[in-house]
Design a binder for these strands. Structure first.
Length: 288
DNA sequence: GACAATGTTACAGT
DNA sequence: CACTGTAACATTGT
């Protein structure tokens, strides 16, 4: 997914194009994706879009909201008279709607919001606005790196909190920073790149890291997330922005995905191992 | 065919 | 309770 920079990219796009629109109807082509009663939101108007970690919230003006998680392969694509003229990513979207389109939100003035999802892991839930943070995925979400604005009131990942978290955990550092209950928003691409940038071996135990190493990782996390955001996200699998266009970070990863290639820092071969079930790339020479 | 893929959760085991 | 590993969800690409 869509990790924090990708979801933030979507959020900004939805804010620009969706706010002010009324939801007239929802075509549910695949029921597994949609939870709740669509009658609760018909003719409601979108007032704002929020982000909680890798989750999205579409706020409505009738006391309800839509909580969204696009998991690995979800897409939210907005089309109206104007944006229909923009070309969508030929490779990641093709035509719209397509065989992976599972929900179509019919908006006023003929605008539409499409939810596509190749693997159908994602979900969209109708929830009362004042209960949305009770959803397990949102309730347990850890503090947010401060590169992008999250929902008001969400805790921020300060260096002190980060230091406290790492120094008290016996877990391996890479799965720890990817644990959404510990930190909201970091996934496999940015975890790999942040640890490479900080020159830390992803297999290190968190509580073995020195104070200055922790500070380096903290800085590196913010640097790579910001870079991801500046590139409009990473379109490694199927991610596209709200206009259906590719992001650029996948072309600029530091080490993620470079299996069999050489380290950009020292030229030695990049190692690939599995840590916590996830593909992990690192340079034995540079990351200690 | 085998294996891997930006995520999350449930469960079994240590 | 803390932590690790595995499978599951479904599909595509190498």
């Amino acid at each position: 997914m869509p990790e924090l920079p990708e979801v933030e990219t979507l959020k900004l796009g939805l804010q620009k194009y969706l706010v002010g629109h009324k939801i007239l109807d929802i075509d549910i082509l695949h029921p597994k994706i949609f939870y709740g009663d669509k009658a609760d939101i018909l003719s409601a108007k979108v007032t704002d879009i929020k982000r909680v970690g890798k989750g999205l919230i579409i706020e409505l003006d009738n006391g309800f909201c839509l909580a969204i998680h696009i998991k690995l392969t979800g897409q939210l694509i907005y089309r109206d008279l104007k944006t229909s003229k923009f070309a969508v990513s030929k490779e990641k979207v093709g035509t719209i709607p397509n065989k992976f389109t599972h929900l179509i939100f019919q908006l006023d003035s003929g605008a539409k919001l499409y939810y596509n999802d190749q693997r159908r892991f994602g979900w969209i839930k109708v929830v009362k606005s004042n209960e949305v943070m009770n959803l397990p995925f949102f309730k347990d979400m850890g503090p947010e790196p401060s590169v992008a604005k999250a929902l008001e009131g969400r805790p921020i990942l300060t260096l002190e909190k980060f230091r406290d978290l790492l120094s008290k955990s016996k877990t391996i550092v890479k799965p720890l920073i990817m644990d959404q209950k510990k930190i909201g928003g970091i996934g496999n691409i940015y975890a790999n790149d942040a640890l490479f940038l900080a020159r830390i071996d992803p297999r290190r135990k968190a509580n073995s890291l020195s104070s200055s190493e922790i500070k380096k990782i903290y800085g590196a996390i913010h640097t790579v997330l910001q870079k991801g955001l500046d590139s409009g996200g990473a379109s490694e699998l199927t991610f596209v922005n709200v206009l259906g266009q590719d992001g650029g970070y996948q072309k600029h990863t530091l080490i993620y995905g470079k299996r069999g290639k050489v380290c950009p820092n020292c030229g030695k071969e990049i190692k690939f191992v599995r840590i916590g079930g996830r593909g992990t790339y690192y340079c034995e020479n540079c990351q200690k």
